[in-house]
Design a protein around this nucleic acid. Structure first.
Lengths: 189, 189
DNA sequence: CCCAAGAGTGATTGACCAGTCACACACCAA
DNA sequence: TTGGTGTGTGACTGGTCAATCACTCTTGGG
């Protein structure tokens, strides 16, 4: 039952809030083990209404993923701005720093990890490719770095995902230190 | 009902076969969306008996993961043998080639991707760390390469996972080529 | 021959969850 | 005031799945 006196919002604003909730919940528990009800609860909404706003669970996940990559590219752009028109390596380095700052809350990072694992759903695979394309093309054109340096940039980004997923930066043991060395880590929260 | 005249196997042999089936099925559909019944069917066994051989789904997944990393280290060892006592870079290069050959069927690769996404289950996270530790320490000690080269080796391995998950090596577009450049790709099957 | 220990299964249970539907309430324009 | 449109929900359905249990069948040693 709708609460007395509650002001209704436009469905667009609601959709937006639901995507925020979806980013957080899907990042926590992944695609398959996140029930729509968890997203709904976080958005302070009924599960049924989520299905009015999005045609299905997959398209909600894709919307969350799109927002995630949007923020990533935006962060890279900020990092590049910090480097001005320095040499390519310097620009890539600043982008890396900005990325590390962005994923300090772990949400955007874990969402990407979970998305990769859910890529057997074609729509999700498409969304990941789309996002990765934007990131790669932006890094390449904005930095002007040669292809192999761009590739390296992305490779170390993937390594960063692994390190954070497994908390290797706080893990005892030489081997963990080898993998984590020199990589800027997000804090625990 | 047990089939008439069927010879019973020892439970150890069965356990082994079930782990093989688990590697294949979990690699296909991941931890959360692979029902035990799928593993059971592939192992030509009843779902109920899987639970007699393993205390639960998680421990079966961990067993599959352990086997996966076992094979990875074994492959790296073979690759290193091919390089003999060449310089460290050469040894790491051969290890990379051997790894690419090993994951030609995609199973061992996808299993690692799915495991990373299921790392919120502590036992799974432990298993991944255990496996990664073995891989890292083996690569480092066998190659004798400096830490940053070992780190780089692992980083490009992660990039390889991304490329294969998304089929970037056969994807049209410059950006996909940038990421895939110079990386030895497994075939589709 | 007999029976104990091991191999293996069918049937069921209890929980969870995506998606649907009929309905309730709020706002606004005429 | 009225009714139409958009916002929002409770209750339900159909399906899936991990885990359990009581049970059967097989085999090999005494």
């Amino acid at each position: 039952m709708t609460k007395r006196g509650a002001t209704l919002s436009t469905s667009d604003a609601r959709r937006d809030a639901v995507v925020d909730a979806a980013v957080a919940e899907f990042a926590r528990t992944g695609f398959h083990s996140t029930p729509i009800s968890a997203v709904a609860t976080r958005a302070a909404i009924s599960p049924a209404y989520v299905f009015k706003l999005f045609p299905g669970k997959v398209s909600l996940f894709v919307a969350a993923l799109d927002r995630c990559y949007e923020q990533v590219v935006h962060a890279l752009s900020n990092g590049a701005a910090r480097a001005g028109d320095a040499e390519p390596e310097k620009i890539l380095y600043e982008m890396g720093g900005a990325y590390a700052d962005l994923i300090a809350d772990r949400n955007l990072l874990m969402l990407q990890v979970h998305a990769q694992s859910a890529a057997d759903t074609p729509e999700i695979a498409d969304a990941v490719r789309r996002g990765l394309q934007r990131v790669t093309e932006f890094a390449r054109s904005r930095s002007g770095a040669p292809d192999d340096q761009v590739q390296r940039f992305l490779a170390y980004g993937q390594l960063c995902h692994l390190i954070t997923t497994l908390d290797l930066d706080t893990h005892p043991g030489d081997w963990a230190a080898v993998l984590s060395a020199g990589i800027r880590h997000p804090g625990k929260n």
